[in-house]
Design a binder for these strands. Sequence first.
DNA 1: GATGAATGAGTCTTCATTCAT
DNA 2: AATGAATGAAGACTCATTCAT
Lengths: 192, 192, 192, 192
Amino acid sequence: MNTVSKSQKKRDALVKATISLVNNNGFHATPMSKIAKMAEVSAGTIYLYFENKQDLVNQVYIDVKAAFSKFAFKDYEEGGSVNKGFEIIWKNIAEFKLMKVEEAMFLSQCDNTPIVDEPSRKEGLKHLQPLLDLWERGKKEEIIKPVSPYMLYAFSIYPIAFLMNMQEREIFKLTKENIDEAYEMAWNSIKI
Amino acid sequence: MNTVSKSQKKRDALVKATISLVNNNGFHATPMSKIAKMAEVSAGTIYLYFENKQDLVNQVYIDVKAAFSKFAFKDYEEGGSVNKGFEIIWKNIAEFKLMKVEEAMFLSQCDNTPIVDEPSRKEGLKHLQPLLDLWERGKKEEIIKPVSPYMLYAFSIYPIAFLMNMQEREIFKLTKENIDEAYEMAWNSIKI
Amino acid sequence: MNTVSKSQKKRDALVKATISLVNNNGFHATPMSKIAKMAEVSAGTIYLYFENKQDLVNQVYIDVKAAFSKFAFKDYEEGGSVNKGFEIIWKNIAEFKLMKVEEAMFLSQCDNTPIVDEPSRKEGLKHLQPLLDLWERGKKEEIIKPVSPYMLYAFSIYPIAFLMNMQEREIFKLTKENIDEAYEMAWNSIKI
Amino acid sequence: MNTVSKSQKKRDALVKATISLVNNNGFHATPMSKIAKMAEVSAGTIYLYFENKQDLVNQVYIDVKAAFSKFAFKDYEEGGSVNKGFEIIWKNIAEFKLMKVEEAMFLSQCDNTPIVDEPSRKEGLKHLQPLLDLWERGKKEEIIKPVSPYMLYAFSIYPIAFLMNMQEREIFKLTKENIDEAYEMAWNSIKI
DNA sequence: GATGAATGAGTCTTCATTCAT
DNA sequence: AATGAATGAAGACTCATTCAT
């Protein structure tokens, strides 16, 4: 007996196909028929798993965002130093963006485009709380600048998406050293 | 005699309509007919000014990017200190993103999405040279970190787009003080 | 031991669901899946009882027509006076149309629409023979007008369907007195 | 220069095709593509003249009903005797139903089916007023039975539809004499 | 007998693009 | 130059029917 049901496998294939095709063509230029074909499933089958096209992207977005968040807090424990804690999280995020390029690109497109609806956006944000908590503590300990978390995010986390985009376009290559340098830049921007 | 011909007015109206509609609905959810209607022009007329839909976005992208670049180097002269020069450019860019929201949102969507083709992307990049030159000089003078300009861009310029997005969604508000803080963060991330 | 088998119950439920849904939405706007759901039966199960959708309506039509005919000749015996016999039958039919509205509406829709096939139409007509016989006798006795039975039906029986439709749309209300008046009109049209 | 514009010709062709196809297959079994083909028009063109399929039937229904009503009161003038007035109207209606079979069948299907929406039904009813007025006068003059106009309609006008249906199915043939007999039956049912 | 997931042909509708005026 | 009616290919979605369980 399988631990992963046949149904789950199909849903997974659909999610994966959606990510790949939306990355390459954009949401509206990706027909359901192509998603079905890539997932090796009939066109009608999509509608057994998702209500409609909008529901499909929404769910894929939430799924991927959840996986991203889980990855972001790998090996992170709340008690440690702000400094070290941020480094762990930042490097996790960087690793995700560089290793799981497909997923990361998909999130980037959703986050800069009106294809995902507001409720799903909200849902996707939920999991980032530990980072916000860490920053809050960092501010109290006067290690982190006393500015809005949106500012902290903009200057320390968001830039990774740009680097990922450039890497994807083969304009720029991220190496081990690069990453350490990038981390330095992120930290410099938010530390007091 | 008018300095702006009737033709130019129509082209401008089409460009403006495209920006507005693509911002709100995305490229593929924006029909040519709606663009025509908003520009108060017949559907067929678009094809007198642009080859097809792809050509339309490409040209709009290049236009807006040119306007953006021009704005970015307002009041900037190449000879001055790296420090001051960067501040001028950065604040120009920030001003653009916060004042010309429509244009800025459009660029953000194009830059994170496969709707504009690669040649147009390249074309749009051309005008940023003075900033790259400034950074190069900054590196020589050991004021700017000796890292790839993509890294510099990612951490100092790209974050502004995130703040703009948040402001647009009314999640976050940029004020005078905020902007100075943001500039601080940008500068801290790239300075040695 | 049950007189009604489990199978028969399912078939009955399917027939009932079909009547109700076709009444409200029309035949082609009624999916098999909805019929199945309303009958609390799996979609595939329908095909154990009926060959396909066409066969389903056909059979439902024949069933309902049979029930209708049976009801029409309740308390009627062939030997009595034409006058009295017709009154009994007519009032039975009126009662059916006004009490069993669902069934009557279904018949009305089938009789004015190409959804039931010709063989089933013929089959459904079979049971009306006693009325035709009565009319035939009435003509011989020079009580009933010597015209085609289709004419007799058109002017004496068919009008009830119109009244039922109006009642169903809550445009017109049939009361005890109304019915007697209606019967008068029916009789006046066919009597010599 | 034509008195009938090219546009009007196309709309007419679409209306005609709709009537014919809905008669033979029913509304929901008539694809827009077939209507387009029969009207010798591209599928997309339908949507220049009608908002959607529902709007198409609604408009066709209203159109046909208007033509029917106009025909019904041909040669009729309000001042004459109730008796004669009714005969003129009744025979006009009969002539319409037997000459313009396509249109009449279409109306019959719409009137016994939920394919036309309620507002359009109301709209279609408007034109029958002169007949209602005549009946009202007939009641005052104690020539017509003092019953609801729905009853009068059911027994005198509605039966014609049945005869038309039978004729269409080649089960029954309406001749000159038949029609006079039928008129007799209609009049007998409503006269005092 | 019974289920319901899966199929894929078929439907309505949209929209980029053309072309006669 | 400008129009906008017309096209028809393509897309989202539905649903009758099948079949492995």
